Amino acid sequence: MSLESLITSLPAWPVADFSEFGEVEVKKLTPVQKLTGRFLGRNWLAIPHVTHHDEVDVTEAETRRADWNRANPGAKVSPVALLVRALGRVLADFPQFNASLSDDGQSIILKKYVNIGVAVDTQGGLFVPVLRGVDTMTLADIAAAIAAIAEKARTKGLSMAEMSGSSMSLTSLGHIGGTAFTPIINAPDVAILGATAIQLRPAPGDDGAIIWRKCLPLSLSYDHRVINGADAARFVRAIGGIFADGTLFE
Rank of each mutant, 00 (worst) to 15 (best):
I210W: 01
L6V: 01
A46R: 15
E20P: 08
D206C: 00
S159R: 04
I242Y: 07
V80I: 14
V50S: 03
D93G: 08
A119K: 03
R237M: 04
A209L: 15
C215Q: 13
L131E: 12
E4I: 15
F243T: 00
R65A: 06
P188D: 07
P79C: 00
D231T: 07
P188R: 04
G229V: 05
L248H: 06
V84I: 07
V120M: 07
G246E: 13
P188I: 13
A197Y: 00
V226A: 13
L131V: 10
V118A: 09
V56R: 02
G241S: 12
I242H: 08
P183F: 00
R89C: 01
P48F: 02
A92L: 13
H52A: 01
A232K: 05
I109M: 12
I47G: 05
I47M: 10
P202G: 09
S159G: 14
P129V: 00
F39S: 15
R42H: 12
T51E: 09
M168R: 08
G174Q: 05
E25T: 14
S166T: 11
A144I: 03
A147V: 05
P79I: 00
E60M: 04
A81Q: 04
A238Y: 09
E250A: 14
P48Q: 03
D207R: 10
R70M: 03
V130Q: 05
A145I: 11
L45T: 14
P48N: 04
L216Y: 07
P11N: 08
D207M: 06
I227S: 06
T171F: 12
I239N: 07
L220K: 06
V190P: 03
